[in-house]
Write a protein that binds this DNA or RNA. Structure first.
Length: 259
DNA sequence: ATGGTAGTGTTACTA
């Protein structure tokens, strides 16, 4: 099975590009983040025409997560147990969607940005990641042989080489030690990141300041796999060319092959 | 030229 994850930054703006990628790449299951629309606005027909069903969770113009599949699905779950809320009044955001596809439990995740180290959103981000670790650890405790993929936009650059210049990130989010510790904590829960050993490449370049032409990017999109799933990963790639051309997302797809 | 892009229920907010 070919599994991919992609922060599409508005599916309505990007639907032609996304469907073209699915058809070109032979992706069986695509987890999407930042669909930026409600369910009734999601362009299901374009996916169906290409042979994909889409499970989508979107509440408004922010966030939004989905899974497109051409191998069927079951057991849809919106949000994970203990997922923190945000806002006033506090409410669950559309940042996590679980769907089982061909024996793989796929979680499409859009981790909160954090904004700045002083912003309440940063604490929300850390709490969200801690709750995810607790939930995911529980799933593995319940079934150590489960094939689970935690995929998406983590909004964390786990290593210094995951940004073009650490000096540019002095005092910024995405590279702080608490965020990196929260990402590593998934390892303690039994998960491992499975793309890094196959590919070294950024997954995101800001639209501003010529970041892409200068290749001043960040690696913040990852696939965390349970032991049983990780043992069946045969390769991975980052589709850098998807940042080129007309109206690209600021992220590119991350692809994993599973036997 | 003291910004700079792009998305959305656009004239504010998020990333």
């Amino acid at each position: 099975m070919r599994l991919a994850t992609w922060n599409v930054n508005s599916i309505r703006t990007r639907v032609d590009r996304v469907v073209a990628f699915l058809e070109r790449s032979g992706t069986d299951v695509l987890a999407m983040q930042e669909t930026k629309c409600r369910e009734d606005q999601f362009p299901h027909l374009a996916f169906e025409a290409a042979g994909y069903e889409v499970v989508h969770h979107g509440l408004n113009q922010w966030n939004g997560v989905a899974v497109a599949t051409r191998v069927g699905y079951s057991d849809v779950e919106v949000g994970f147990p203990g997922m923190p809320t945000w806002g006033d009044p506090a409410a669950a955001e559309a940042r996590a969607l679980g769907v089982t596809c061909d024996g793989v439990r796929v979680w499409s995740l859009y981790v909160p940005n954090g904004r700045t180290l002083e912003d309440p959103h940063y604490l929300y981000k850390l709490q969200w990641l801690a709750a995810l670790k607790e939930a995911a650890g529980g799933w593995l405790a319940e079934d150590p042989a489960a094939r689970i993929a935690l995929v998406g936009d983590w909004n964390i650059a786990p290593r210094d080489e995951d940004v073009w210049d650490m000096a540019a990130f002095e005092g910024a989010t995405h590279v702080s030690e608490p965020e990196r510790a929260a990402f590593r904590a998934l390892d303690e829960a039994g998960f491992s990141e499975v793309t890094r050993r196959y590919v070294q490449q950024y997954t995101y370049w800001d639209y501003k300041q010529l970041r892409f032409p200068r290749n001043e990017g960040m690696r913040i999109d990852f696939v965390q796999a349970s032991p049983e799933l990780a043992a069946h990963v045969t390769g991975a790639g980052i589709e850098r060319d998807e940042r080129k051309g007309k109206a690209p997302s600021d992220h590119v797809p991350v692809v994993v092959d599973i036997d």
